[in-house]
């Protein structure tokens, strides 16, 4: 019973810290690192969450592609690479086209469902074209693992995180804390299997 009480107290404290303090926001900003928005060979927008059956992108996927489009509009790279599931890539491609990106500037490869698969697919797409300096668009919390995998695939990575401070209300902070926990588990798993 004592053990259960201790676990319960720990859970309550964790909940309080995650929801009502800016700890998750600080970790989010820390994981994002310093953005390096410099002219590059390509803008790479990694997949996140795919798209619904009706082709609607998830919030995070949408944020990423909009960041990528904004970087393209700032003339930071001549090519926009859209990655992820087939449905996600298609939805993103039509959005990018609709927002004025020429079709010739959009590159999509085969479906890739994990970050490791995406790194391999983007390597297959860009390295033969000699495009090795990339602006990597991902969520702040995904940036350390995604950057490491892209560097491992031979790219010079310039991080372009979608945001850095994170949400300000308790419910969203809890969601962020949950995503941070998942990402740290994914990081540990990749280290364990030697993928990083």
């Amino acid at each position: 019973m004592r053990a259960l009480r201790a676990i319960g107290l720990l859970g309550l404290l964790t909940f309080g810290i995650a929801a009502f303090t800016p700890l998750a926001n600080h970790m989010n900003a820390w994981m994002a690192g310093t953005p390096k928005l410099e002219p590059s060979d390509a803008i790479v927008v990694l997949g996140r969450g795919g798209a619904d059956a009706d082709g609607v992108l998830t919030n995070r996927s949408l944020r990423r592609v909009l960041t990528g489009i904004s970087l393209y509009d700032s003339a930071l790279a001549p090519v926009l690479v859209l990655s992820g599931s087939t449905a996600e890539m298609e939805a993103r491609r039509s959005l990018a086209r609709g927002l004025g990106i020429p079709d010739s500037a959009i590159l999509t490869g085969r479906q890739a469902l994990t970050t490791s698969e995406e790194a391999a697919e983007i390597e297959r797409l860009l390295q033969p074209l000699g495009r090795s300096r990339i602006l990597l668009v991902a969520d702040p919390i995904d940036m350390p693992r995604a950057s490491a995998l892209m560097r491992r695939a031979g790219f010079v990575v310039r991080p372009a995180p979608t945001a850095s401070s994170g949400p300000s209300n308790p419910e969203s902070r809890l969601g962020l804390a949950r995503d941070l926990t998942i990402e740290l588990c994914a990081w540990a798993y990749h280290r364990l299997v030697g993928a990083l």
Binding site: M1, L4, R5, A6, I7, G8, L9
Partner: peptide
Amino acid sequence: GTEALEILGLSMV
């Protein structure tokens, strides 16, 4: 209160 903590602990388990 302590019983509530036990339920919370059990939930986490």
